[in-house]
């Protein structure tokens, strides 16, 4: 049995393919074609997220309750994905919460390097069920101050600059007891 195995060849037996580099393209050393798509999208948001974003414009965070599993859900949706029944009661939540996780990003959206890190993470919102929240930026703190479990509070754009977007909240800042 062992002898039989030793006779076997090693797989994959070879590695077909030809490696080329970025510069081969930029210096036109290989034949290629190029295309830049021009496409634009506009999404209509449906009842649940339309209400959520309109409330953000008014400076409030709103969730919705599933009367079957009793979850208070944020971001809100018209149905509970687990119970698979309609959600019913809208619930205003606080604009404070807890940092569930975070990252200090030295990459922008196109993976280009940036000097000052973007502070981002997931905030579970006070008044919603545990672990229910959304992603956002952090500010008014040094990167090393940001910790999982830390209490934070939303910093809103001035009312006349809000447009019904998640960015109507500028970021979340550290929240210490007694502050408003």
């Amino acid at each position: 049995m062992t002898e039989k195995k030793e006779q076997k060849e090693s797989y994959p037996k070879y590695a077909p393919g030809t490696h080329v580099h970025d510069k081969d393209i930029y210096e036109r050393k290989i034949t290629y074609t190029w295309w830049e798509p021009e496409v634009q999208y506009s999404w209509s948001l449906g009842p649940a997220m339309s209400r959520f974003l309109q409330e953000l414009k008014a400076g409030k965070i709103i969730g919705i309750k599933c009367n079957r599993c009793r979850r208070v859900i944020v971001p809100p949706r018209m149905f509970c994905e687990y119970c698979y029944g309609p959600t019913s009661d809208w619930v205003y939540l606080k604009d404070t919460g807890t940092v569930e996780t975070f990252s200090l990003s030295y990459l922008d959206a196109d993976a280009r390097r940036i000097e000052e890190p973007i502070l981002i993470g997931v905030i579970s919102i006070d008044g919603a069920s545990p672990k229910h929240g959304f992603m956002h930026y952090f500010g008014e703190m040094k990167p090393e101050e940001l910790k999982i479990g830390m209490k934070v509070k939303a910093v809103w754009k001035p009312e006349n600059e809000r447009e019904g977007s998640i960015t109507d909240i500028k970021y979340f800042k550290p929240f210490r007891g007694g502050e408003e």
Partner: peptide
Amino acid sequence: DPIIDRPLNPNLIWLFAMEMNR
């Protein structure tokens, strides 16, 4: 998600960084 995530200009690495940190 185009509604709640994309306006924040995210990079996909963020997802994994946040999961790894958690």
